[in-house]
Simulated scan of single mutants.
Amino acid sequence: MTPDGVAVAVMIILLFPMGYFTLATPAFLLVRLDIQPVAQLLRGMFNAHFVVMRIAGVIGTLAFLLDGRLAAATGVGLLTVLAIYGRPWFMRRMDDQLSARDAGDTDAPRRLRRLHWSGMLGNATLLVALLTSIPYIATSA
């Protein structure tokens, strides 16, 4: 595969789950998070996103390393590390708020909503960074 082909393949591998998550999570802003099945679905979506980004990040990092692009591999590797170590941190906080909501804490859905917003904002920030890096990755060989 040509160097530009590797860059395009890695970008697609990374952009697909990030783009899907960016498009799917705002729908949860239209529903109340004190409804148990809705909150569990949101939790599952965040969990799946972290897992998929971990897998996509490892594949992308290895592809760039095998192609000899150390800078690009480092950038994608940082994204992978964030997905690996961010998942337990984020999911623990989400589980805490779900448990608090189930225990009768009336402020828990509001904190869960803030966590939802922070997850969307984090993903959007990483997506913008990845999109911004495309011209630099595609031209470096």
Rank of each mutant, 00 (worst) to 15 (best):
L121H: 08
F64S: 02
A56Q: 05
R111L: 12
L14W: 01
D34N: 07
I84F: 15
A83I: 08
L98E: 09
P88D: 07
R113P: 00
L66N: 03
A138H: 05
P135L: 12
D34G: 02
L65H: 03
P135T: 04
A27D: 01
D102M: 13
P17L: 02
L29C: 09
D4V: 10
L30D: 01
P37L: 00
V52T: 07
A141I: 08
D34A: 02
W117F: 14
L131K: 04
L30I: 10
V76T: 05
P17R: 04
I137A: 05
L23E: 10
S140I: 13
Q36C: 06
W89Y: 15
M18L: 04
A83Y: 09
D96C: 02
V51M: 07
V6A: 05
V38F: 12
A9Y: 12
L33D: 01
A83H: 09
V6D: 05
L131G: 11
G60S: 05
R32K: 09
D34V: 00
P109R: 09
S140E: 12
M1Q: 08
R43C: 01
M94P: 01
D105C: 05
D105E: 10
Q97G: 13
P109A: 08
L30S: 11
G104Q: 14
D67C: 08
M120C: 10
A103K: 13
T61S: 07
Q36H: 12
A7P: 01
R32N: 10
G60W: 00
V8D: 06
R114M: 08
A24F: 06
I55V: 13
F46A: 00
V8Q: 08
M11V: 03
I55F: 11
L127Y: 00
V128Y: 09
A7T: 07
L112R: 06
A24L: 08
A141W: 15
P26F: 11
P17S: 05
L79N: 03
L15M: 13
M120L: 14
S140P: 07
L112K: 10
A100H: 04
L70V: 09
A48G: 11
A72K: 01
P17Q: 05
D96E: 15
H116T: 07
L41S: 06
A7Y: 02
R110V: 15
R43G: 03
L14K: 01
G86S: 04
L131N: 04
I59V: 15
V6W: 03
Q97N: 15
R111E: 12
R93Q: 14
Y20C: 02
D102H: 09
T2A: 14
T106W: 06
L33E: 04
L98F: 12
I59D: 00
I35H: 14
N123Q: 13
M1I: 09
H116L: 13
I84P: 14
L41G: 02
A129D: 03
R54K: 08
L126P: 01
A71W: 14
M53N: 12
A72M: 05
D102A: 15
V10D: 04
A24K: 12
Q97P: 15
D102W: 10
N123S: 15
W89S: 07
G68F: 03
Y20N: 03
A129W: 13
H116E: 11
T132N: 08
T61R: 05
D105A: 11
T2S: 14
L62M: 08
M53P: 08
D107H: 13
S99E: 03
V10A: 06
A27W: 04
R101L: 12
R93F: 15
G77L: 04
D95N: 10
W117N: 09
G57C: 06
A56G: 03
H116G: 02
D34Q: 03
F16S: 06
